[in-house]
Write a protein that binds this DNA or RNA. Structure first.
Length: 207
DNA sequence: GTATCGATGATCT
DNA sequence: GATCATCGATACC
């Protein structure tokens, strides 16, 4: 694994994420974002699930170098990288890392602010599926390709709050390479992650 | 409950 | 032509 690391830079409740936060390594940022509230035009909530990617990672869009799609990942930290997934969905990354080519995919958040708006955009009032998944989250927050390359410390984005410590790690979702790298992070026990981890429910052999 | 598959289009080989 | 950092519907257990 990655061994010891310094504590992620965190923001006090109601305060902006500090400058320099996104210049830390991608794993530190991915972990540090759990619990940070992400708002887009005032709509969103605390981040519940993230994944880290960097340029040395075969699962990363930046692995094969710069292209028309991934230009934002090769820009400075603290900007959005938004791409279309499977021709249908949008996915939001936050460009970050100590090296060029890093980003954190925002996979899920707890819907708190603007729930009615999110429900209308998603076509459901089921809180569990409003923002649980990168495509769902972008639909709920109104994120599309026009958000690519925009700075995260300015409107319509707002990032604030405090990162949490009850974080679990595991393999990333939907990739074919880099599966062994445990760079998916989520808030332990959160029902809003894209794939809830059902622990200790052994229906097979109940004593 | 889990498993599989089609949609849909840009990107990559 | 193949591959996707996905989702939702459907089939099956």
């Amino acid at each position: 694994m990655k061994g010891n690391r310094t504590e992620p830079a965190i923001a006090p409740p109601g305060h902006d994420v500090p400058a320099g936060f996104f210049s830390q390594d991608v794993v530190t940022v991915a972990r540090g974002l759990i619990g940070i509230t992400l708002l887009v035009n005032g709509v969103g909530g605390p981040i519940a699930e993230t994944e880290a990617y960097d340029a040395a990672d075969p699962a990363s869009h930046s692995y094969r170098g710069r292209s028309a799609r991934n230009g934002s990942v090769f820009g400075p930290p603290g900007y959005a990288y938004v791409y279309r997934s499977y021709g249908i969905h949008w996915c939001l990354n936050l460009v970050c890392g100590a090296e060029v080519g890093g980003a954190v995919l925002i996979r899920a958040l707890q819907p708190i602010n603007g729930v009615d708006v999110m429900a209308e955009r998603r076509g459901t009032t089921d809180l569990r599926v409003l923002c649980s998944g990168p495509g769902r989250l972008c639909q709920a927050l109104g994120i599309d390709g026009t958000f690519d390359g925009r700075p995260l410390d300015q409107s319509p984005f707002n990032l604030a709050g405090i990162s949490l410590t009850s974080i679990q790690a595991g393999p990333r979702i939907g990739i074919t390479r880099g599966k062994e790298t445990l760079w998916r992070f989520w808030l332990a026990g959160s029902p809003f992650v894209s794939r809830p981890v059902r622990a200790s429910r052994k229906a097979k052999t109940p004593r």
